[in-house]
Each structure stands twice: as C-alpha cells, then as structure tokens.
Computed example of a mutant assay.
Amino acid sequence: MEKIAFLGLGHMGEPMARQLLAAGHPLTVWNRTAAKAEPLVAAGAEAAASPADAVRDADVVITMLAGPDAVRDVAEAITPALRPGIHWVEMSTVGPDLVKELGERVPAGVTLVDAPVMGSTDKAAAGRLGILAGGDAAGVEHVLARFGPVTRTGALGSGAALKLVVNTAVIGGVALVAEAMKLADALGLDEATAKTALAGGPLAGAVARAFAADVHFGSDLAVKDVGLATGMAQLPVMEAVSGHLEAAAADPDVVHEDISRAVTHIRARRDA
C-alpha cells in the first residue's frame, strides 16, 4: 500500500483522508490548524509538523486546500521535498491556470495530477464523490477510486477546468432558485407549495442543493469559485450571482456557512 501524505483537513479533506485510512494506506496528515489532525491521528494517521515533513517519505501526495493562495503556499513548502517517482494529486478547486503553474514548478520525475471532486461533505464521508482527473492519472487512479468514481478528463488542467464548469452550473442554479423563491415570497405564495413546484421542474437538482442540510460548501468558497470562472470567460449571469454571494459572504454569520444560508440571505435582500 502506498504511503500517502494528505495536506488540508477541512470540511472535505478530513472525511476523504478517513477513506484512505479505512483502506489501509499508511497516512501522514498535515493541516495549518494542527488540532484538526488530532481525530485522524487517533484513528491511526501520523501528524506532520510541516508540509515538507509530511511529503518527505510519501509515494502519493494529496492536497485539498481552500483556494489558490493556500495551494501556492503549500507548493512552495513541499516542492523541494518531492522525490522522483512521487505522484502529487492536487484536488482543490483552483482553476486550470494554477495547475499549469504548478506543472511548471514540479521537479523532474514528479507526476502532477489535477483531480478536483464533485460532491459535498456527505459524499466525501460515504466515498461517493465524483473525481475529475486530468493528466497522467494511471498511477494513482486506484487511490482516487477510494473517494468515488473517477472520470479521466484529458490533459493536465482539464480536471480543474471541468470543475469550474460544474461549479458554475451548481452555484448559478442555486442562486436562480433563491431568486425564484424571493419572487414567490413577494407574490405571497406558500413556501412549501412553491418549493414543491420548483422541485418538480427542470431545476430539481438545484432546488435540492439550495435547501440541503448536513452538507457544507461555504459561501466564501462559492465566491472564490465564481471569481475563478468569471476570470476565464465573460459570464454576465454569474457576475450577477457573484454580487449575491459577496453580499451574503459579507455577513459574518453566513460567510463560512453552507450556501443554503446564502439562499436565505438572497431571499431577504431588499436591494436585490
């Protein structure tokens, strides 16, 4: 079994790392907030004091971090410690440009794979995420399959690109549901009746996500993802969605909460 270093133990990273432990992989973990590693250590993982220490003896390195800045910081720390033959799997949602940047930085003999995921914390805990793998993923596909079904997307960066497409559709759909419910509120319709009608139409999946419970995708992360998407192409609808999300994320009670809280915020806005 490959020795795996897992860096980033947030809402998604922690349950994903548990899947690797359950499969029997020797696992070293690191997180900027060290206390978040303690439950995994109790389950059998080894905690590293730094990103470089985590990857030094690893066969596979997995990074699952909040965004581009965090990935760049960790990349700077681990790149000198990556040995030839290591596979580095970058699973954060950062866009294809950063993946290309990382590809230009990795040492000779290190294989970089971009493999962001589809799904939230519930699917991460169940091992049912969808994995979008770009680049030469053959050497790690069996590891990625511990998290859920793997789709090979093409060249390096294509997984990160497709993840932006998927997230744009999901976030845009959730915002559209929020505005439809805002209209229902304004028209005095019964909330449950409006929600049921929407759930029976073509936006059924977006309705389910807009009102989901026990999952987590923070409004701040949604703002980050929409910003990545609108930086790649002219997307007027998503620019409007970004305004909604930025307003929600400005509320300290909402910023790190699931985007379902942003739906409530959008419905309550008087200037939208």
Rank of each mutant, 00 (worst) to 15 (best):
M238T: 12
T121N: 07
L221R: 09
V165C: 14
P80N: 08
T63G: 11
G154H: 05
G139L: 12
A77R: 09
V61C: 09
G227I: 03
R105I: 14
G139W: 14
P15E: 04
V113W: 10
A184I: 08
P51H: 12
A197D: 06
G44V: 04
K123F: 10
H87Q: 09
P84N: 01
P26A: 07
G10K: 02
A178T: 00
P107Q: 05
L129F: 00
A199E: 15
K36P: 05
M1K: 05
E104S: 13
V237F: 14
T111L: 06
E14K: 15
G227A: 07
V140H: 11
P84F: 03
D57F: 03
L112Y: 12
L235Q: 07
G135M: 00
L187M: 13
A268S: 07
E2P: 14
I259N: 05
H142K: 15
D271A: 09
H256A: 15
M12D: 00
I4E: 11
R146H: 13
L98P: 06
D97Q: 13
T111I: 12
L132A: 06
A22V: 10
A75K: 02
M91K: 01
F147H: 11
R152N: 11
M91A: 13
L82Q: 03
G119W: 07
D258F: 09
A43P: 11
L221S: 14
L20N: 02
G103T: 02
A17C: 07
K224R: 10
A222T: 08
P15H: 03
A48R: 12
A145R: 06
K123Q: 15
